[in-house]
Write a protein that binds this DNA or RNA. Structure first.
Length: 583
DNA sequence: GTGCGTGGCGCG
DNA sequence: AAAGCGCGCCACGCAC
């Protein structure tokens, strides 16, 4: 330990006037950057307590108990005019904003978690693994000691006494480690345009999390109750009629279906058992009364368990749900959202979406990027046929569908959907058999549609093959294959499966388009209305009387007719009452 | 009782 | 040669 990188560090607790004075003297020293971190009783700043504020540099870490010595921390936060660095800055900034009234100086805040993702999106980006790797393999010993102490004393993050050395010491070390990580990683991302873009996403997402989305708690509660009543009846019926003790046990259902002579052939992904997914159930719905029942019960329970219950439980006193938005949740640079998974709300079922409402006096404004992945595929592949199809006056899928099927295709024609499936299948490197499966068409038809697509738009296939060829060469050379986005993020694949890079090359830039758009809205003063990102869609919660202006302004700002070979257009809708009820 | 792999399914 | 990408969440059923 003597010559380890962390052998000369100092960890200190502010628990006396003298210590506070010493902290203030220390704060006056010159240094490149200050680390900041917080400990809380839980993950939600709206309901959990702030317990510890830690400030440090590369050699010294201070732990400041918030309740007794918060003033000392706040003074430092407000008076320091240099750069801050935090690991997952969004978390600390939200706690400090709510509990300390600190207005984060975002233009002076760095985030090592964001840096880590840009440097290497495929590796763990928690503080501990990074510190292990970049600072000192002994860096996480303190965390283990704390875990043991918490276990021995039956403490949790809310009850562990702040003057427990294992607790405050662990806390005080974090800003120090963050500074050390920043030293190593900032130089690697400083000049990558993605870093500034991602920091703007971090900042804007922090705002969205603080605002939250308003839910109709009454509606969600009532609907969940109704559904549960129905589920009870359905389960009873299955028991009475078919001796099924649990409708959602696939094992029980499969046994019964087989006993009743229903033929099942599809296997699950792992090949360990017969599949009973919704396609299988759909196929046998006329052969056994249980098939439809299973689907309905599954759906009802998901509606309650995944959505309605969570919306009720996660709502704060004012009816707002503050989901966790992770601006770099996916390797591709897409954002992910949890608690609840707002990005997966049913599109067409009103029960759940009616539970989401605008703030008092507001409307929801939702705006979508039109066919963004297909447009970006047209751009990056450079296929002239696709580019031209987007330049034409008609619906893109109708246009190329008409070319593929040599017939006039209008909206509503099933061949339009098939065309859409084909385009997105191409974006994901699907084969014709997979298309046949998703589109419920014969393999022969799928093959001929694919062949026709490749014939008409050869650029897509060439583009995909090029990416795979380069990736395979890299893999053969012992390197990690990757694609690079316009903002300079590298998205890797690990192992010999290269083809996902083709999708990454489109999904990654699409994610950047959305973040670029969010930043542009912020620059025009519109980001305070933002409440939710959904991959190619933004939802805003804006005063009714200006909702229409906001919609058009947002459309205008987001629409981009210069950067790519095809226009990126957006179109939106206003929801005055609930997310699904059209105005 | 808790953790974890599996199966299933919602969205883009 | 052939290849459907990215997430989060829940229930089940087995292992510890």
């Amino acid at each position: 330990m003597a010559d380890s990188p962390l052998s000369n560090i100092q960890l200190k607790l502010v628990n006396t006037i003298d210590a506070a004075m010493e902290f203030k003297r220390w704060l006056g020293e010159r240094r490149a950057v200050l680390g900041v971190d917080t400990e809380s009783s839980g993950l939600h700043p709206e309901k959990d307590r702030l317990r510890l504020v830690q400030i440090g540099d590369r050699d010294t870490g201070w732990a400041i108990p918030w309740e007794l010595w918060g003033g000392v921390a706040l003074e430092a936060l407000n008076n320091y005019t240099g750069e801050w660095v935090a690991h997952n800055a969004s978390f600390d900034c939200r706690f400090l904003q709510i509990h300390a009234g600190w207005k984060p100086p975002w233009d002076r805040i760095h985030d090592t978690m964001t840096q880590a993702h840009i440097v290497d999106p495929g590796r763990p980006k928690g503080l501990k693994p990074l510190a292990d790797r970049l600072v000192d393999s002994q860096a996480t010993v303190g965390a283990q000691v704390l875990t043991q102490a918490m276990y021995d004393n039956n403490w949790d993050w809310g009850s562990v006494p702040v003057d427990t050395p294992a607790y405050w010491g662990y806390g005080a070390l974090d800003p120090l480690l963050t500074c050390r990580i920043h030293e190593k990683m900032y130089p690697l991302v400083e000049d990558v345009p993605a870093y500034a873009l991602e920091m703007s996403a971090v900042r804007i997402c922090a705002g969205m999390m603080l605002r939250g989305m308003k839910v109709d708690v009454e509606h969600c509660t009532t609907k969940a109750l109704e559904l549960r009543e129905w589920v009870l009846e359905a389960r009873q019926w299955a028991l009475d009629e078919f001796n099924i003790k649990n409708v959602t046990s696939n094992k029980q259902i499969i046994d019964r279906l087989v006993a009743d002579g229903v033929e099942l052939t599809k296997m699950t992904e792992s090949g360990k058992s017969l599949s009973l997914d919704k396609d299988v159930l759909e196929a046998i719905k006329d052969r056994h009364p249980l098939a439809n029942l299973v689907r309905k019960v599954r759906r009802a329970e998901k509606t309650c368990g995944t959505y309605l219950d969570n919306m009720v439980e996660l709502a704060d006193a004012n009816g707002y749900v503050h989901a966790q938005i992770n601006p770099l949740g996916a390797v591709t640079g897409r954002m992910s959202i949890q608690d609840p998974a707002w990005q997966t709300l049913y599109r067409d079922d009103k029960v759940v979406r009616n539970g989401v409402i605008p703030s008092e006096g507001n409307s929801l404004v939702a705006i979508d990027a039109d066919q963004i992945e297909a447009r970006l595929m047209a751009h990056f592949s450079g296929d002239q046929g696709l580019i031209d199809a987007f330049k034409g006056p008609d619906d893109f899928f109708c246009t190329i569908g008409s070319e593929i099927f040599q017939d006039t295709i209008k909206k509503g024609d099933f061949r339009r959907t098939l065309t859409k499936n084909t385009v997105y299948g191409k974006c994901y490197c699907a084969g014709p058999d997979k298309l046949a499966e998703t589109a419920h068409i014969s393999q022969e038809t799928a093959h001929s549609v694919f062949n026709r697509f490749d014939y008409l738009y050869p650029g897509v296939k060439e583009y995909a093959e090029g990416i795979i060829r380069d990736g395979e060469a890299a893999y053969a050379a012992g390197e990690v294959p990757y694609v690079e986005t316009p903002y300079g993020r590298r998205i890797p694949v690990f192992g010999s499966k290269i083809y996902p890079l083709v999708n990454y090359s489109v999904q990654g830039p699409a994610a950047e388009v959305l973040k670029r758009g969010m930043a542009d809205l912020e620059a025009k003063g519109l980001s305070d209305y933002l409440v939710l990102p959904v991959h190619d869609e933004l939802v805003l919660d804006a005063p009714k009387d200006i909702a229409n202006d906001v919609l058009h302004e947002v459309e205008e700002i987001l629409t981009d007719r210069t950067t790519f070979k095809v226009d990126l257009t957006w179109s939106g809708e206003i929801y005055e009452d609930r997310w699904t009820t059209k105005a």
